[in-house]
Design a protein around this nucleic acid. Sequence first.
DNA 1: GCGTTTTATGGTAGCGCTGTCATAAATCTT
DNA 2: AAGATTTATGACAGCGCTACCATAAAACGC
Lengths: 329, 329
Amino acid sequence: MPTLADVARLARVSEITASRVVRAQGPIAEATRLRVLSAIAELGYIPNRAAGSLASAESTLMSVLLPSLSNIVFPDVLRGIHTALTETAFQPVIGVTDYDPLVEERILVSFLAWQPAAVILAGLHHTPTARRHLEHGRFRVAELMDIDGEPVDIAVGMSHRQAGYETGKHLIKRGYRRFGYARHNISTDDRASARYEGLCLALKEGGLSLIAEHCYPGASSTKAGREALQILLAATPGLDVVVFPNDDMAMGGIFHCMHAGIAVKEKLGIFGFNGLDIGQAMPMPLSTILSKRFLIGKTAAEKLLESRERPAGKTIIDTGFDIIEGATA
Amino acid sequence: MPTLADVARLARVSEITASRVVRAQGPIAEATRLRVLSAIAELGYIPNRAAGSLASAESTLMSVLLPSLSNIVFPDVLRGIHTALTETAFQPVIGVTDYDPLVEERILVSFLAWQPAAVILAGLHHTPTARRHLEHGRFRVAELMDIDGEPVDIAVGMSHRQAGYETGKHLIKRGYRRFGYARHNISTDDRASARYEGLCLALKEGGLSLIAEHCYPGASSTKAGREALQILLAATPGLDVVVFPNDDMAMGGIFHCMHAGIAVKEKLGIFGFNGLDIGQAMPMPLSTILSKRFLIGKTAAEKLLESRERPAGKTIIDTGFDIIEGATA
DNA sequence: GCGTTTTATGGTAGCGCTGTCATAAATCTT
DNA sequence: AAGATTTATGACAGCGCTACCATAAAACGC
């Protein structure tokens, strides 16, 4: 493998000059630049980033820790991040935490070994050790999805509590009174919990409360939603609306209604969260809340690139959410 | 930041001994090991992987180049890869090529700067430059999804040509005769093209051919499928089955039928590809082919970890596919 | 009990690059 | 035209770790 020294020799310049050409840094005479560039091309030189990172004590890697890849939500965020990083020198290294803060901590530490330029993670809740690393590290930090709390550096997302609250207000305004809720078993999905709390608060303010709940004993999925709704309705007849923690489960709910001949919206309202494309492409578009996942990822990565140094103050960016009225509630 | 030298000093051993403890490599007396470990804990030492990679000329990074993150297919593959890498020291660095071989080449080169232990990419078709890098590099290479061709090192996937062929045979056996096909505009989706060819071959062998095609002028999506089917049926009445390049579009097709009051299966068969969960959770499960995306990712990563050195022979692993009869064709 | 193997540890050099400081050449002031 | 500034380049050290080789101590064989 050719090294920078080989390039420098061929171009008849010093290593450091060749290095400057590679990094497009510092003043370089155009003729010299061209000579170095042609030497690079001739040798097929590829810079060694490990050496570069070691020498400069900083890398072009950006650590991305996501809770899951099982539904499209986090890939959407990742897509946003990747979009912002295209055309920059930064590269995302990804880890999946399975919604487990201890796994998050373990992966974070292993990522720090690369001296990343920035760390992106989901949520504001981390282990004390992880939080300590994040606070004391010489890198930027973005905490995504959630803004209900105090970030280490930057938070980009929306208030899930408020989304839950608005959901409740919206459904009450639409005339629904007998609320059910179908959850899944990921108790560490803080954001789903925050939406749940917001929903309960809105109901309480309206003199109502959830009259039925069912927790599906497994991860979130369309099938989970379908089965959960079936059980919920069997146990508590007379519900007029069921709120789901996300669109996947809500679509399962709709599928159950289609199967069981229940008139969605008239007889039973169905409300989700996320605003996935597929729910909106249905003949009866899902009533839900649009979370701006791509935007969250993109905005976060862009913000992180603005400055290498962590500024004094913390930044909170609210990407907001939209209620999609849809046709199911 | 504490370095290995600090750890060594505190544990009263040489740097190299401390290094061996960190890497769990070579014979170390238990007492020494414990002393080093406690020094590491006390100092909060985090190894510097850039230095390690530079010294050993190999990294724990695995480059993963995916065509897209826009539907769940590649995240599923990534999830499989990640699952195989959990509990190992390897970390995936990801890049998205947008189905563009030139973008793939550019990202590949930037990834090679990290001296990755392995490179994972999709498909067997790359630019000549990319192919040269892959062939001459000192790393393992896995080419995923497709096995209709000659891999550089390992290929893991299925024969898309055969999947298309089986689709045709299956639908002919079911009595369908008047075939339509709805495509999307990503002409570089080699695998969709291979399935298309296989389908045409099966039709030809049955004395049939596609009597209608429509290309949606945009990327694949549920909405694309819905609109494509509408146009297809308007232009060519009398179709009795429409094959879609994937489940997302096929579900759009079903949604169009629901909306237009067309009896799916009896009046019009709908066939997809991928076997996504959501299609199977519908009241009328989608007839499709199950591609084993998670398995492909997991198998590939596991195979790559078996040996650092590229073996003499090439490995092709056929993960196969299942026809899901479903209720829509 | 003396050579032989195994186990445990260390010294040294160097991986390929970039930061720092120095210097030379070109350009600008007045 | 002499000094001040800007532009362009280089020498050198060292980032933190591991490969390589050497060595010492313990265990083994007959």
